[in-house]
């Protein structure tokens, strides 16, 4: 065999072998048919460490075709290490088109955010999930959590949320906030900020979740009820921010705090970089936006 060529022609399309893809595809179909149920699957070793999105990459590799357009985000950003390397990986092993624009992508693989731009019906959102079992920190034994899901016994989760209220006066969970899918399974939305939970509810896009180390795949079909757990007197609330994005001035979006210097200087900017860039290109301005706009690395620390 000629191993000289630069592209990885010796790998199968999208890296995984066909038998693995079939196994993952079957798990995806079961996941869609049983919304919120974690389907066990024979997760493979991937050319990246656990915790870097091996589950999401396996799901994406199993569904992607040559006509797909892939977007990868890491905490909302298209330009961080994890996003850049996964995008490069699929560019190389599947030769698919890639984009940073939410609206142009057919598959969006995400680590811990749902894009601000509303998703449409043809899109598939693939989540990278570290701990798929929402009950795991309450009950470490898989045999027991499996029984709890089987019997729909979720009292423990409500006790946990109640203890939050007793200790802090409010539900202190801010990410991986448990949801109930279609009135049946309590499910981990992956460590997205709870800000994104309402976007999962009756989303027109198909949402697939892959956990590589924990060997689980689950799914939320389009137009499926996803309800964040809460109490009547302590209803679910999303985070609010008391200032708009410092670069694009967007309100009602999820913001990241960026430290500017070691004297306490900081700013809040959109975590969704594509959304922020689009808004700035459209002429929106935040109070820290540079005069010559676009180019994102010009935040030199002030001396």
């Amino acid at each position: 065999m000629n191993a000289q060529s630069n592209d990885i022609a010796t790998y199968n399309f999208a890296y995984l072998d066909e038998q693995t893809k079939r196994m993952i595809r079957r798990a995806i179909l079961k996941g869609i048919a049983i919304p919120g149920y974690q389907v066990p699957f024979a997760s493979r070793e991937m050319p990246m460490p656990y915790g870097w999105g091996t589950g999401g990459v396996q799901v994406t590799a199993s569904i992607i075709g040559p006509d797909d357009v892939l977007k990868v985000i890491d905490q909302g950003a298209d330009d961080t290490t994890n996003a850049v390397s996964i995008r490069a990986f699929f560019k190389k092993v599947a030769k698919v088109a890639v984009t940073t624009e939410t609206a142009k992508a057919s598959i969006i693989q995400t680590r811990h955010r749902i894009p601000e731009h509303p998703l449409n019906a043809g899109q598939v959102l693939v989540f990278q999930v570290p701990i798929p079992e929402p009950l795991r920190f309450l009950e470490p034994r898989e045999t027991e959590t499996r029984k709890m899901h089987a019997l729909e016994e979720y009292g423990l989760m409500h006790v946990k949320l109640y203890e939050d209220i007793a200790k802090h006066g409010r539900i202190a969970t801010t990410y991986a906030y448990p949801v109930k899918v279609e009135g049946r399974y309590v499910t981990d939305p992956s460590p997205t900020p709870k800000f994104d939970n309402p976007k999962m509810h009756r989303s027109p896009a198909l949402q697939l979740f892959g956990a590589g180390r924990e060997k689980r795949i689950y799914a939320v079909p389009p137009f499926t009820d996803v309800v964040s757990l809460d109490f009547e007197d302590h209803p679910f609330e999303v985070q609010t921010f008391d200032q708009p994005c410092a670069l694009c001035g967007a309100e009602n979006v999820y913001l990241d705090e960026v430290i500017l210097d070691d004297h306490g200087g900081h700013m809040f900017v959109c975590s969704d970089t594509d959304h922020c860039e689009k808004r700035r290109a459209d002429g929106h301005h935040g109070h820290l936006a540079p005069e010559t706009h676009l180019a994102s690395e010009e935040t030199e620390p002030a001396e």
């Binding site: 399309f13 893809k21 179909l29 869609i32 569904i63 992607i64 075709g65 198909l206 799914a219 079909p221």
Partner: peptide, 19 residues
């Protein structure tokens, strides 16, 4: 084309199962 045809068929099934 085993690889691409299987993907085409699977995507049709996945979309049909999801909708």
């Amino acid at each position: 084309e085993p690889v691409f045809n299987a993907q085409t068929v699977f995507r049709a099934i996945m979309d049909a199962m999801a909708r």
